[in-house]
């Protein structure tokens, strides 16, 4: 299938998943376009649109939790950042995604899961 067409399909499917979770696509449209393109390539190569910013291990249980949108499996961590790890999705109230930092899993856990970032 044509990459552009598949990107639009994924975009529409994911929209229905992220909306009830309180997320939207990043206002950074260039980033969104780039990430969706990577996901289409990953889907062609590996069978699923995996997160382009996290590493697959080959273990199904691990890797299936990295299929986009992976928010449900990283909810507290991503909520603390107000974005997902790769930045494709942000909280609905975010207007300037460049202000949001990537906080590693360890930093998040050590913060006592407090909203101090």
């Amino acid at each position: 299938m044509d990459t552009g067409k598949r990107k639009e399909q994924l975009k529409a499917m994911f929209q229905r998943v992220i909306d009830p979770l309180g997320y939207k696509y990043s206002p950074d449209t260039e980033l969104v376009d780039f990430l969706l393109e990577q996901e289409v390539m990953l889907e062609k190569e590996k069978g699923s649109p995996f997160c382009p910013c996290q590493g697959l291990t080959g273990e199904r249980e691990h890797d299936m939790q990295l299929v986009c949108p992976c928010i449900p499996f990283h909810r507290e961590h991503f909520d603390a950042m107000k974005r997902c790890w790769c930045g494709l999705f942000v909280h609905k109230d975010v207007d300037d995604p460049d202000k949001l930092l990537q906080i590693s899993r360890k930093e998040f856990e050590e913060s006592g899961k407090k909203d101090r970032f």
Binding site: L31, L35, M41, P52, C53, G55, C86, Q102
Partner: peptide, 8 residues
Amino acid sequence: TLSTCPWC
């Protein structure tokens, strides 16, 4: 890094 990751 990952070849697919813009933050990388």
